[in-house]
């Protein structure tokens, strides 16, 4: 079971959280101007990283706030936790126990 460090509440079991996929996907600024391909890519296509990826989590059974997690999708090790709006950590490798 994962232990995830909520930036506001500290480390908690994964069951308190909900996962919401790849982070940093940008919504097209003017949806009515873009092609179907661009809009389809935004809605449905994902990088599906095997390795270190940035992803969105919500502490849904806690403070109900959203944040980003840099997690390895093979080992499941969490390398960093950072708040929404914060830049992607340079190394994405800052160790967390």
């Amino acid at each position: 079971m994962l232990q995830i460090e909520c930036p506001w509440c500290g480390p908690r079991d994964e069951q308190e959280f909900s996962y919401n996929g790849e982070a940093h996907i940008r919504r097209p600024a003017q949806p009515d101007q873009v092609s179907d391909e661009v809009w389809g890519d935004y809605l449905f296509f994902r990088t599906n990283t095997k390795g270190l990826q940035s992803e969105q989590w919500c502490h849904s059974h806690g403070c109900r706030r959203w944040f980003n997690v840099a997690r390895d999708t093979v080992t499941y090790r969490i390398h960093a936790v950072y708040r929404m709006g914060d830049p992607v950590p340079d190394t994405m490798k800052r160790g967390m126990s």
Binding site: M1, E14, Y19, N48, T49, K50, T73, V74
Partner: peptide, 13 residues
């Protein structure tokens, strides 16, 4: 499982 993963094992929860 609730989150994306390539580890061929499941979460205990």
């Amino acid at each position: 499982d609730a989150y994306l993963g390539y580890g061929q094992r499941g979460s205990f929860s």
